[in-house]
């Protein structure tokens, strides 16, 4: 059983995330706990103290609950594993981190629409929530059929870091797995797809680590090209797995690849 916390709002992105979780449930047993954080409109210290503050928070949470219950009712047929929502009032990142740290979750998930501004994605994965979360996360950008998974490799990747974080979940999912070694080059016009992946630096170590964990490796490829072209190519995968947390330089072109990849991204 994979215990998932999904952050929800009454919007399209959350609807996509819940339906994607519904697809995951076809491959493994999941428990899906939705959480909605109602942020007070006024940032900073919360309104009042004692009974006043408690009553005010309660009213805000009730309002949030109404909005979220409607979403949950609409999406439940697409994801029967969806539990009753938890609605809390406070600062979003802190509240979700608190829940992740106390709730023994295996995975965090949220829907975020793909943005043309690659800075948005960088901001997301360098946020306190993604850097400090005690478990990996899936950023669901689109509802893509979950048929095969791409495990991304790049120069300087520590194979054990990637494989340790994902192996339990991927082994349960039993989905075909491709290892894609990325060589992003901004000046390259056409995308080059090389099936001789074993020639890539560090590729064999990653494959060894995957096989040791008993995962179903299908093929390996090296993609050389512009980050946007690589991102387009990755759209054929239902899940793209990449180790980026505390592993990449902020200016790395891998960030650009992930920012423009329209498929859901598993971040570890």
């Amino acid at each position: 059983m994979v215990n998932i916390l999904v952050s929800v709002n009454p919007d399209l992105a959350s609807s996509i995330a819940i339906r994607y979780a519904g697809q995951l449930a076809h491959f493994m047993e999941i428990a899906l706990q939705p959480i909605h954080v109602k942020e007070p409109e006024q940032k900073g210290s919360l309104f009042g103290t004692g009974w006043v503050r408690h009553t005010w928070e309660h009213a805000l949470a009730e309002k949030g609950e109404e909005e979220i219950n409607l979403l949950i009712r609409t999406e439940k047929p697409y994801c029967p594993a969806l539990a009753a929502p938890r609605v809390v009032v406070g600062e979003r990142e802190n509240e979700i981190l608190k829940e992740l740290q106390t709730g023994a979750y295996d995975l965090f998930m949220e829907g975020i629409l793909a943005s043309f501004d690659e800075g948005d994605f960088k901001k997301l994965i360098t946020s306190k929530l993604y850097q400090s979360a005690p478990c990996p996360a899936i950023v669901v950008k689109n509802l893509v059929p979950l048929e095969k998974v791409a495990l991304l490799s790049y120069v300087g990747l520590e194979p054990s870091k990637l494989v340790d974080d994902v192996s339990d979940i991927l082994r349960q999912a039993k989905l075909p797995l491709d290892v894609i070694h990325l060589v992003p080059k901004k000046d390259k016009k056409d995308l080059e797809v090389n099936e001789e992946a074993h020639e890539a630096q560090g590729f064999d170590n990653l494959v060894d680590a995957i096989r040791k964990k008993g995962l179903d490796l299908q093929k390996g490829q090296v993609l050389t090209g512009h980050p946007k072209d690589i991102a387009d190519y990755l759209s054929r995968y239902g899940l793209v797995v990449c180790a980026v947390r505390n592993a990449l330089d902020k200016k790395s072109p891998i960030h650009t690849v992930l920012a423009f990849t329209p498929s859901p991204i598993f971040i570890c």
């Binding site: 399209l12 629409l113 793909a114 943005s115 043309f116 501004d117 950008k141 689109n142 759209s235 329209p262």
Partner: peptide, 8 residues
């Protein structure tokens, strides 16, 4: 098949 995204 429709992909969704946003642009500012």
């Amino acid at each position: 098949k429709a992909w969704v995204s946003v642009v500012d």
